[in-house]
């Protein structure tokens, strides 16, 4: 009984932790998806582990992972549902957040996916 209670507390803490203060976004925040200026379309992944793997993978490995990704056009709207700070190691960004989002515009509306923190911008209207 005691062990189960501790496990529940840990589970709750794990669930709460991604929305912690270290993330650049918070749960419920409305965002716009936009990648680098070289190619602003955004890849979204079905798990945060794949998101992390993609950014650490070689080119051939990344090609093999593509069935697990969707590509959305820049300016696609979404809402943050989760965030793990500094979860992704990237050769360019060194460390980036993994952000869980629900897509709220475009053909993939309603899908929940994981996206790189640097590809997420606060929606202009949502800014204070």
């Amino acid at each position: 009984m005691g062990k189960s209670a501790v496990a529940l507390v840990l589970l709750w803490l794990t669930a709460v932790a991604p929305a912690g203060a270290d993330c650049s976004v918070h749960r419920g925040m409305h965002v716009v998806l936009y990648s680098t200026t070289d190619d602003p379309s955004v890849l979204l992944w079905d798990s945060r582990a794949r998101l992390r793997d993609y950014n650490a993978a070689s080119f051939d490995e990344a090609q093999a992972m593509l069935p697990h990704a969707i590509l959305v056009a820049p300016d696609t709207r979404a809402m943050v549902v989760s965030c793990v700070p500094n979860y992704v190691e990237s050769p360019i960004f060194h460390q980036a957040d993994a952000v869980g989002v629900v897509i709220t515009s475009g053909p993939q509306r309603g899908l929940t996916r994981w996206v790189l923190g640097s590809d997420v911008r606060a929606e202009p209207a949502a800014q204070p």
Binding site: Q63, L66, I70, L71
Partner: peptide, 10 residues
């Protein structure tokens, strides 16, 4: 398009 994005990223 996705492959294009991967190329672009790499």
């Amino acid at each position: 398009d996705k492959r294009n994005k991967v190329f672009s990223d790499y």
